[in-house]
Design a protein around this nucleic acid. Structure first.
Length: 671
RNA sequence: GCGCUCGUAGCUCAAUUGGAUAGAGCGUCGGACUACGAAUCCGAAGGUUGCAGGUUCGACUCCUGCCGGGCGCACCA
C-alpha cells in the first residue's frame, strides 16, 4: 500500500510545480506533525520563501491554492512562519484502514511495501570468540544484528547473515596443547566423544599453563604452526574445540531467538588460506594508485587470479604494468620521506613495510605522536591479523566469485553484496573506518555486477553498564555469562507472572516466562538508541508499565483476551461498510495503525530498531486510550462492535509483526 | 597530547535528522475497578537541553571555543 507520506509528497510536489515551476517540484518536506497542530505538515514554504524572495506565508498560501488534496485531508491551514498543517479526513482514514484489513496481502505485511530495488545485504553480527563462553558483551551485537537482519529481510532485501567467529589464531596453540594433555581421544571412532563441560574453565586452565610453563608455551606456539600446516592431529583437536564451542553458541542463539545457523558461520579459519593473496592484492592495487584521481585498476583486476566481471571505469586512462611499478616506487619514496619526518602527511593510500610489518597507510589517520597510523595487515613474524581477515571477508563478500576454482567451499550462490553492515561495538570505530577506507582505496568497493560502490556501514553500539554506571560485571568482577543472565531473566519473569496471574497454568507460565524473560532483555536493548551506553536494570526491564517488553506483550495478550471474551476468531470478522472512527480515541488509534510502514522505514534508514520500539509503544498507548474509552465486546450496536474488533485485530497484527517478526520477541495469547 | 563519542526533568531514556509550546516511563502528589485483563488508565508538579559565542525566518540538533564523562590511539580481537 502506498504510504501516506508518499501520497502527500506527490500531491505537494505537483502543487509546487504548478505554483513555482517544475524546478521547485521536489522535496516538499512532509513530516508527521505534532498532534497538537496537525497529523502531517509541509515545511517547504519557509525554505522556498528564502529562495524566491517572498514571504513564507504567502508562499504557503500559493502552494495551498494549487494543492489538490481534498479527498485525503481537511482544508489545510497555514500556521506560524509558514507551516502548512494537514488533518487527515476520518472517512479517508477509515476507508484506507478497511482496505488494509480486507486485503490479506496487505494485512500480513502491516501495510508495508517491499522495497522497489532489493539489495543483497550482508549483516555481520554476533561473532563470538570460539573457546570462550559467551558473555554479556556478545548480547547487543546478537540482538541488534538479528533485529536489523529481520527488518531488512521483511522489506524484501536479500539478507546474508554472517557470524564471523574468532576460531583461528594464536590462542588455539595453547588450547590444542592443553587438549593433548587431557588425553582427549579425538578420533571420531571413540564411543563417547568428550565434551567441554565449561569452556571458560578450559580456556583459563590453558591460559594459566601458557603463562607459567615455558615448555608448554613453546609447544603451544609449535601447535599453532602445526595447525596452520594442517597437521592432522592438531586439526582434529582444533575441530573438536571449535565444535564444542559451536554447540554452546547454537544453544544460546536458539534461546535468544537469534536466527543464526551453522551455515551462516564463516569465521577466521574460513579466510585463513586467503590471507596471503589478500595482502598481495592490496599491495598491488594500492601501489597502482589506489584512490588517486585516476586509476587503471582494471588492469590490476585482469591480472588478478580471480576472474572478475567487466569493470567499467569510463574515462580512466589505461596504464601499463611499468607504470604500476613506478607507482610502487613512488609509494616507497613516500615511505622513506615518512621515516625521515614522522609527521609527513599521507596524500593517498599505499602499502609499505614499517618496522618489519606490512602496513596500509591511509590519509587522515595519525597516532598519538602525530605520526602516520598504519593498518597492519601482516606482522613482522609473518602472521596475519584481524584487519587482514576483515579485508579478506570484504573481498569475499563483494567481489569473489564463489565458484572460483580455488574456493574449497563453494556457496549456493554468489553474493556480490550491495551493502555490508557490521554490528560491533563502538570501540572498533577506528578499526572499521580504516578497513573501509582501505577497501575503497583499493577499489574493492565496486560491485562487479552493478558497478556501483558498495555501501559499508558500521552499526556501532555502546556498552552495557551496571546500575552503578560502570561496565556490567559480576560482584567478583567477572563478565556475566550469557547463559546465566538469560536463565535469571526467565526465572524472574516466571516469578512476576506467578504473582500477577496466579490462575495461569503451569505450562502456560513455563512457556510464557521464556518469551517474557528473554523478550524483556531483548526489548530493553532494542528500545535504546544503539549508539549510547545503557544501564542494565532488572526491575526496569521487567516492569509491566512503561516502554518495556512485558508491557507490549501484555497489550497483545489483552487484545487476544477480548476475542476470547467475544467468542470470536479474527478470521470470522467481516466489516459492514467502512470502519467507524467516531470518537477521538478511535481516530488516534486508526492513524497510528497507518504509521507502521514509516516506523519500519526509519529502522532501515538508520539501522536503529529503537524507532520501531517507540512506535510500538505509542501504538499501545493509543490502544489503551481506545480500550479505556470504547467498549468493544459490549459496544452499542453490532456494526460498531465489528468495527472496534477490527481495530483490535489490526493492532494485534501490527504488534505481532513488530515484536515477533521484526524484533524477534515472542508474543503470547495469555500471560 | 590527538581522534571518536556522549552530556536533555530527581532517575532511566525519546525528540521523525534544522521545524511550532523539548516528550515518555519510573519516582512524587491527586484521582478512576457492580463494562471487555486495575498486569491498566486519567491528571498535576518537575527544564536556561553542561557553559559561552556563532550560522538563520527557526538550533537539543549544524560551526567554533571551553567544562565534564566514556572509548580508542601499530604487530590482541
Amino acid at each position: 500500500m502506498i504510504s501516506i507520506d508518499s501520497i502527500l509528497r506527490q500531491r505537494f510536489a505537483t502543487a509546487l510545480g504548478l505554483a513555482f515551476g517544475s524546478e521547485f517540484a521536489n522535496d516538499p518536506m512532509i513530516k508527521e506533525g505534532d498532534e497538537k497542530f496537525a497529523d502531517y505538515q509541509c515545511n517547504a514554504a519557509m525554505a522556498l520563501g528564502k529562495q524566491l524572495g517572498l514571504p513564507p506565508r504567502a508562499v504557503a498560501e500559493k502552494i495551498i491554492a494549487h494543492l489538490d488534496i481534498s479527498d485525503v485531508c481537511q482544508p489545510p491551514a497555514v500556521a506560524g512562519p509558514g507551516f502548512i498543517n494537514l488533518r487527515l479526513k476520518p472517512e479517508w482514514v477509515a476507508h484506507r484502514l478497511t482496505r488494509f484489513f480486507c486485503d490479506a496481502a496487505e494485512k500480513v505485511r502491516g501495510g508495508v511495501d517491499l522495497v522497489p530495488q532489493p539489495q543483497t545485504v550482508v549483516v555481520d553480527y554476533a561473532g563470538p570468540n570460539i573457546a570462550k563462553e559467551m558473555h554479556v558483551g556478545h548480547l547487543r551485537s546478537a540482538i541488534l544484528g538479528d533485529a536489523i537482519s529481520r527488518t531488512l529481510k521483511f522489506l524484501g532485501h536479500t539478507v546474508v547473515r554472517q557470524n564471523h567467529v574468532g576460531d583461528f589464531g594464536t590462542q588455539f596453540g595453547m588450547l590444542i596443547r592443553h587438549a593433548q594433555d587431557l588425553q582427549l581421544k579425538a578420533d571420531d571412532s571413540a564411543p563417547t566423544k568428550p565434551q567441554i563441560a565449561d569452556l571458560d574453565t578450559y580456556y583459563k586452565e590453558a591460559a594459566l599453563r601458557d603463562k607459567t610453563d615455558p615448555e608448554f608455551s613453546r609447544q603451544a606456539r609449535q601447535a599453532v604452526v602445526s595447525l596452520q600446516h594442517q597437521d592432522p592431529q592438531a586439526t582434529v583437536l582444533w575441530h573438536w574445540i571449535v565444535d564444542e564451542s559451536r554447540r554452546h553458541a547454537r544453544e544460546l542463539f536458539a534461546l535468544l531467538g537469534v536466527q543464526l545457523t551453522d551455515a551462516d558461520e564463516r569465521g577466521e579459519s574460513f579466510y585463513h588460506d586467503r590471507l596471503s593473496s589478500v595482502v598481495e592484492r592490496l599491495r598491488y592495487a594500492l601501489s597502482y594508485g589506489g584512490d588517486g584521481p585516476a586509476t587503471g585498476i582494471a588492469e590490476v583486476f585482469s591480472a588478478d587470479a580471480h576472474q572478475r566481471g567487466p569493470v567499467d571505469f569510463t574515462g580512466v586512462p589505461a596504464r601499463d604494468v611499468d607504470e604500476a611499478r613506478g607507482a610502487l616506487a613512488a609509494a616507497e619514496g613516500i615511505q622513506r620521506a615518512m621515516e625521515a619526518s614522522s609527521t609527513t602527511p599521507i596524500a593517498r593510500a599505499f602499502v609499505a613495510e614499517s618496522q618489519g610489518a606490512t602496513c596500509i597507510f591511509l590519509p587522515g589517520y595519525v597516532d598519538k605522536d602525530k605520526a602516520p597510523l598504519p593498518l597492519i595487515i601482516q606482522k613482522g613474524d609473518g602472521a596475519y591479523l584481524y584487519a587482514t581477515t576483515d579485508l579478506a571477508a570484504l573481498y569475499f563478500r563483494i567481489i569473489e566469485n564463489k565458484t572460483a576454482p580455488e574456493d574449497q567451499t563453494p556457496l549456493q550462490q554468489d553474493w556480490h553484496a550491495d551493502r555490508i553492515i557490521y554490528v560491533t561495538d563502538a570501540r572498533q570505530t577506528q578499526h572499521f573506518a580504516m578497513v573501509f577506507d582501505a577497501v575503497r582505496a583499493a577499489r574493492w568497493d565496486i560491485n562487479p555486477q552493478s558497478h556501483k560502490s558498495v555501501r559499508l556501514d558500521h552499526a556501532t553500539f555502546g556498552s552495557i553498564l551496571g546500575e552503578d554506571g560502570k561496565p556490567f560485571k559480576t560482584r567478583s568482577g567477572e563478565s556475566v555469562k550469557l547463559r546465566e543472565l538469560l536463565t535469571e531473566a526467565v526465572d524472574r519473569a516466571s516469578a512476576v507472572m506467578l504473582e500477577k496471574n496466579p490462575d495461569l497454568s503451569a505450562q502456560a507460565r513455563s512457556d510464557g516466562s521464556l518469551a517474557v524473560g528473554i523478550g524483556a532483555v531483548k526489548y530493553a536493548d532494542l528500545k535504546q538508541d544503539r549508539t549510547t551506553d545503557y544501564a542494565f536494570s532488572w526491575p526496569r526491564m521487567l516492569a509491566l508499565e512503561g516502554n518495556t517488553g512485558p508491557y507490549l506483550q501484555y497489550s497483545y495478550a489483552r487484545i487476544r483476551s477480548i476475542f476470547r471474551k467475544a467468542d470470536l476468531r479474527p478470521t470470522e470478522l467481516t466489516p459492514h461498510g467502512d470502519i467507524k472512527l467516531e470518537t477521538p480515541q478511535e481516530m488516534v488509534l486508526a492513524r497510528k495503525l497507518l504509521q507502521f510502514p514509516a516506523a519500519v522505514e526509519s529502522v532501515e534508514r538508520e539501522l536503529k530498531p529503537h524507532h520501531l520500539c517507540n512506535y510500538l509503544y505509542s501504538l499501545c498507548s493509543a490502544f489503551s486510550a481506545f480500550y479505556e474509552a470504547c467498549p468493544v465486546v459490549k459496544a452499542p450496536d453490532a456494526d460498531l462492535r465489528t468495527s472496534r474488533l477490527i481495530l483490535c485485530e489490526l493492532t494485534a497484527t501490527i504488534l505481532h509483526l513488530g515484536l515477533n517478526d521484526l524484533l524477534g520477541i515472542g508474543v503470547l495469547e495469555e500471560m
